[in-house]
Design a protein around this nucleic acid. Sequence first.
DNA 1: CGGTTGACAGCGT
DNA 2: TACGCTGCCAACC
Length: 137
Amino acid sequence: MASPKKKNKSATTKSNSGTKLKQLDPSGKNSASFFEQVYDLVEQIPKGRVTTYGAIARSLGSGLSARMVGWALNGSFLSDRNIPAQRVVNRNGQLSGKAHFPTPTRMQELLEKEGITVLNDTIQNFSNVFWDPAEEL
DNA sequence: CGGTTGACAGCGT
DNA sequence: TACGCTGCCAACC
């Protein structure tokens, strides 16, 4: 994981042609891949609220799995847009992805700054700050 | 071309 | 109530 090695092999059809997403662009064939869908949805998360991978997966479509959301968020750092990945946590309310942030504490800091109480990498009052895109959106 | 991993979730035991 | 296995799709080796 996290081996930013440029795929020089098959390169999946044409290269990215210097598009936004570098190597993480899935298939690169068509835009509107679930990556962008996840980014767009995450960007719509109101400040002070958080959502779960499952909620995003369901909101995007029934076929997507929560794991893919993780991969998508993985590319969020490479995305041109600033994706508030800190607002995306697992159904446990735990900052499972904090380790992937520039600094393990960055995620918690951001959440706390938004008014979310985080204790021991776990969002307190999670049910209260939870934002379901399928219902709210 | 095939097997394994991954920021998960849901159901079964 | 707690722990374990399977399922999902895509990328990496």
